[in-house]
Computed example of a mutant assay.
Amino acid sequence: MRRLHEFLAFCCLIVLTLAPLRAATASEITIAAASDLKFALQEIVSNFQAAHKGDKVDVIYGSSGKLQTQIREGAPFDIFFSADIAYARALRKDGFAATEPTPYAVGRIVLWSATRDAAKMRLEDLADPKIGKIAIANPAHAPYGRCAEQVLRAAGLWDKVKDKLVFGENISQATQYAETGAADVALTALSIALSKQVADRGGYSLIPETLHSRLEQAYVVTRQGADKALAKTFLDYLKTGQSQTIMIKFGFAPPGQAAR
């Protein structure tokens, strides 16, 4: 009996000794990412974690403006992927980011519909009385929503369609409105329109870049993520050919290149 107690005590000692070692070797980061990245980043993170067993990467998606506000209020995010480089610059300027903004992609905006042949649609068609609701992301805090407003104003359509607009909290929600029938058409991100989940349900047409400001996107490491080696490891992985191929597949142009 005494030997049994000694053996159990030894086992407990081993467990207590190894537990901190396991905690020390496993790493975890949380990323705040603009919603237009959802499908591309899901694939990249999945590949990354397959090659980094034991490490964990969580991603929270939302509008860039709201995510920026949450970081300022102390949200536990280690990396911030913004759909507008201006939000990343502001965080750095105000001391909430540990790195300078690094551009990672240029986005595009499209007309998308599940009920109409969007590939043949023109912007002028949005004024057609047969189109009841038009979904866009909220321009107040979503870069794609701001660009959608710029497009409608530049095309001389804003006053004609403003009463038809329904606003999503982010670009993903705006797309969902058009997917579910709450809107007839959405002005959404090309990266979302190209995802299998959305492409199988509708079509799209590209909106000329000349009608809106350039969707230059950038990331920063936050103050919280400054000392996390996994944050740097993940961002290095983002620059690999495999990751860049995924970004291009979802319609993102590499920094410094013309958008698709």
Rank of each mutant, 00 (worst) to 15 (best):
G225E: 02
A135C: 08
V220A: 01
G65V: 13
N138S: 02
Q68K: 12
A24L: 15
K160P: 13
G74M: 11
G54Q: 13
P20F: 08
A114E: 07
G251N: 11
A114F: 07
I192A: 00
L41G: 00
L238M: 15
G62W: 06
L126P: 10
E100K: 13
L41M: 09
L21A: 05
I207V: 14
L67M: 15
T115C: 08
D128G: 02
G168T: 02
V166R: 03
I136T: 09
K120Q: 13
P20T: 08
S113M: 00
K196N: 15
M121R: 02
L41A: 11
V110E: 09
R214W: 01
A154P: 12
V185W: 02
L126C: 11
E169R: 06
Y61P: 06
E124C: 01
T115M: 11
Y87W: 10
L21H: 11
I171E: 14
S64H: 04
A231H: 10
I131F: 03
A154Q: 13
M121K: 05
P76N: 04
R122A: 02
A33P: 04
L165T: 10
A23C: 09
G256W: 09
V151N: 07
V185R: 15
K232I: 03
G95M: 03
A97T: 12
K239E: 09
D184E: 03
P208S: 08
L126F: 01
A40S: 15
R223D: 07
A86C: 08
A86T: 10
A142D: 03
I134Y: 03
E43M: 12
I31M: 03
V45Q: 04
Y104E: 10
I192H: 00
A83C: 05
F250Q: 05
S205N: 11
P20E: 08
L126K: 10
K120T: 13
V161Y: 01
L13H: 11
A19S: 09
N138P: 00
R146H: 06
T69P: 02
A155C: 05
I192V: 14
R108F: 01
Q150M: 07
S35D: 10
P255M: 00
G202A: 02
R92T: 04
R260V: 12
I171L: 07
T99S: 09
A154T: 14
S46R: 10
A88K: 04
G202H: 00
A51S: 10
A178F: 07
T180D: 14
A155P: 14
D78Y: 05
K130W: 07
L215E: 02
Q68I: 04
F167W: 06
S113N: 00
L8I: 08
L8P: 05
I44D: 00
I85G: 08
K120F: 03
